[in-house]
Design a binder for these strands. Structure first.
Lengths: 193, 193
DNA sequence: CGTCTATTTGAATGTACTCAAAAGCGGTGG
DNA sequence: CCACCGCTTTTGAGTACATTCAAATAGACG
């Protein structure tokens, strides 16, 4: 059943009736993205939210001086969008790129709004998803404020082991907020322990 | 009308009927907190979410080595809780303290769950609140990754001007993730510009 | 195989921290 | 009302963490 993974993701938090499933799935658009292809580029409008069925994506921001900062990674069974742009209907601050061949289900903003009205369980579902996202980001802020690069690196490895296989050290460095060169010396120092 | 401020806060995102208002307000508990008093201490369970009617609060974390990191400030018309602890029912990682005499309306977790069931509009309301909180934290992560302390300081001053009157530089430093001494030299350098 | 990018290494630099001391400021009690 | 106490802020010297730049090495991919 093609909708299996996304429905089971939603089933973690709400139970849908057959007609609700039918309506929901009728709104979904399937999309395949090959490695290095962009789902969103800075400056565009971000009209969709995506559920990652397989593969891996990276959301990042480029500073005017060219510095690359990774906002999040999303692998199988995660949701991803530029939430600011999606909600506020402003030009995107983020780029979203596939870091491996990926398959996603996309939901357009206007369809999501219709879905909220017709199936209020989705308000609950996304309330819970947003709550978890908020908690996750708040924890990351706290770690960025209070921990050293080495500690953040250790935590990242332990917290997201499924993501590591997709990532270069450069990308991990960009997530941690350090240069690739410095992450390299952090690893060298750790190895000597 | 005592419930005016909190109802108008909710009215920004959903419209309530008279009976819904009656049920909602019956769940609220009023609480006055004097300056320096704690609403939550690390290690406790965080059973409530609070709407700040007047005053100002600060949520912070203390590292084992004593380092103070400010997670958020909340002033009039903001909501605050240790969301991780509130949702996961784990011991709090945060302290929440009044930085001015404050009045809050508190909602217990079990009452909020009842409210979600009886008045699903509150799922929508908190979905929107959580969405905004997520966006805010994600932006803060990005700024911590990509900007210098001076840039973060400027942005903070511009973004939360209403909060500044309540804050010492030490508290601002703790929010920015720098030492008070360093914030002082940042300010000195800016003054010379 | 060759090219392109990632990773490592090292030297020089810069940003932010620690520690210590002085100055400023606010609140409290005599 | 003023003096004192405690806390915040400033300042400076020395240090540590992280960056920049450059070059060498290693890996990935067509």
């Amino acid at each position: 059943m093609v909708f299996g993974p996304i429905l089971s993701n939603i089933g973690k938090h709400v139970s849908l009736e057959a007609d609700e499933i039918a309506f929901f799935t009728s709104l979904l658009q399937y999309r395949e993205i090959s490695k290095k292809e962009f789902l969103l580029k800075e400056g565009q409008l971000c009209r969709t939210i995506s559920y990652v069925e397989t593969g891996a994506l990276r959301a990042f921001h480029l500073s005017p001086d060219g510095k690359d900062s990774t906002i999040m990674f999303a692998i199988t069974d995660w949701w991803i969008t530029d939430m600011y742009c999606f909600v506020m209907e402003q030009p995107a601050m983020q780029n979203i790129v596939a870091i491996d061949d990926s398959c996603v289900w996309q939901l357009k903003k206007e369809d999501l709004e219709r879905l909220y009205v017709r199936v209020p369980k989705f308000e609950r579902f996304f309330r819970i998803i947003m709550q978890h996202s908020y908690i996750r980001e708040q924890l990351r802020v706290l770690q960025n404020l209070s921990l050293s690069a080495e500690e953040r690196y250790d935590i990242f490895l332990n917290k997201y082991p499924q993501v590591i296989p997709y990532l270069s050290q450069k990308q991990i460095a960009s997530y941690l907020g350090v240069t690739p060169e410095f992450l390299s010396t952090v690893r060298r120092n750790k190895a000597g322990k």
